[in-house]
Structures are given as C-alpha cells and as structure tokens.
Amino acid sequence: MDDLVRLVYASEATFDAANQGVELEVGRILTESRRNNTRAQVGGVLYYGNGYFFQCLEGQRDAVVETYQRICLDPRHKNPKILLKGFTKRRLFQDWSMKYLPTEKKLRDFLAQHSLTEFSPFDYDREMVGRLLIYFQQADESGELAEHSKESPTAAPTTAATSAPKTGWRRLFNR
C-alpha cells in the first residue's frame, strides 16, 4: 500500500442549520458518502460544528483525490480548504466508511485545553489538525463519545491497525 494517503479538509456549510436541521443535512451527506466511499474503499471521519465541516479521507491516492474532487462540487458546502495531506503507512479510521462525530462537551473541553474557545478549523495549523485527528480516533476507541456499535467490516480495506468496536451517537450517523 505504497500510495495510501490521508487528506484532511475543512469547509463552510451553505445550509442554515437552524432552519434545515443539522441532522437531516448531515444524514443525507453521510448516506451518500458511505455508499460512495465503500465502493471506492475510502474511509475517514466527518465532524460538523460551528457551521464548519472537518473531514479526514483515507485510502488509495487516486480514490481519495477523486472523492475530494467530487466533494468540492457539492453545493451543501463552500470554500473547501485542504488542511493536511500526505502519504501514510496506516489508517487512523480503518473500519469507517465515514464516521460522523457529533458535537460533544468533551470536544469543547479538548479545544479549551489548547486555548481555543470555538471550533474554527480554518485557523488550525498542521499540529492542531493532527491533534484533532488523534483526539477523534482515541475518543472513539476509548468509548468516550457514546455507546458502542460495530461497523461493517466491508466498509474499508484492512491495513495495519487493530479493529476495535466503534462508538456511536445514532446508528444512522455512526459508521
């Protein structure tokens, strides 16, 4: 797997969460991305907060690039900006076709530990992006985010890393 890559980007939502409901729009995005990502063997994590999307895509280089290009055309967000990209030896989010992590008090606590008052991914440097990725991975593996639910083993190809039960907020959002 010499061309396994990780790409992290942020973008601004174009929908009004108060009027349309975050759950409805994010649910639609997740349904589409899980279908497409499973087929392309791309995995990752999605976080929505404070009007921003923060997403990590992992997989083979061509599949990740194609997925990101398709995402950039989605009218539900604007101003996509790549925060981190590069080759990797293993996936952080191996078994997730696309995991959704909802806003949690623990994330606000995590941000406060780094002297941040709100979720604002366009302002993060590479180090903070990396810390946030590790936070999402570790919070899920430790069960800090919510109840446990196991994702389908076909969601992403197996690489290095061990398989652990995944936590969830609602069954629809957590895969």
Rank of each mutant, 00 (worst) to 15 (best):
E118C: 06
P157W: 04
A146T: 07
Q20Y: 12
P153A: 10
L57T: 06
G86M: 06
K78V: 07
E23N: 11
R61P: 00
R131I: 00
A156I: 02
W96N: 09
A112N: 13
K81N: 05
L92T: 00
I29K: 03
V8E: 02
I134G: 00
Q20K: 11
F136S: 06
A17I: 05
Y47L: 15
E66D: 14
P121C: 04
N50H: 14
R76D: 06
L24R: 15
Q113T: 12
C56A: 15
W169R: 03
R175V: 06
S142Q: 14
L92I: 01
N36K: 14
A63G: 04
F136G: 02
L172F: 03
V64P: 09
L73R: 14
A112T: 11
Y100C: 08
H77I: 08
A161V: 07
L172W: 05
E144M: 08
T31L: 10
A13C: 09
G51K: 07
K89W: 01
L7S: 09
R39E: 14
K85R: 12
E32G: 10
V22D: 13
F93G: 10
L84I: 00
A112S: 14
F93I: 08
A18L: 12
R90S: 13
H114V: 01
G59D: 07
L7P: 07
R90K: 12
L92V: 00
R90F: 03
N50K: 03
M128I: 05
L7V: 14
E144T: 01
D62S: 13
V5E: 09
H77Y: 09
E144D: 15
D140K: 02
A139E: 09
Y68H: 12
A40F: 07
R131Y: 04
Q60L: 09
L24H: 12
F53C: 03
S152C: 12
I71F: 11
Y9N: 02
T88A: 12
G86T: 08
E32R: 14
S115T: 10
D16I: 10
R126F: 03
T117N: 09
Y100L: 02
E127Q: 11
R6A: 07
K106W: 01
V22G: 12
E12I: 11
L133A: 05
V129C: 11
R28Y: 07
R108V: 12
K81L: 14
Q69A: 13
R91S: 13
L116M: 15
K85V: 00
F122C: 01
V42P: 11
A155E: 08
Q60N: 11
R61G: 02
R91E: 13
L116W: 01
D16T: 11
L116N: 01
F173R: 04
E118A: 12
Y48G: 02
D123S: 15
Q41S: 14
A156F: 07
E144N: 10
D140H: 04
G130M: 07
G21H: 10
R170W: 04
E58C: 08
E25L: 13
C72M: 12
E147S: 09
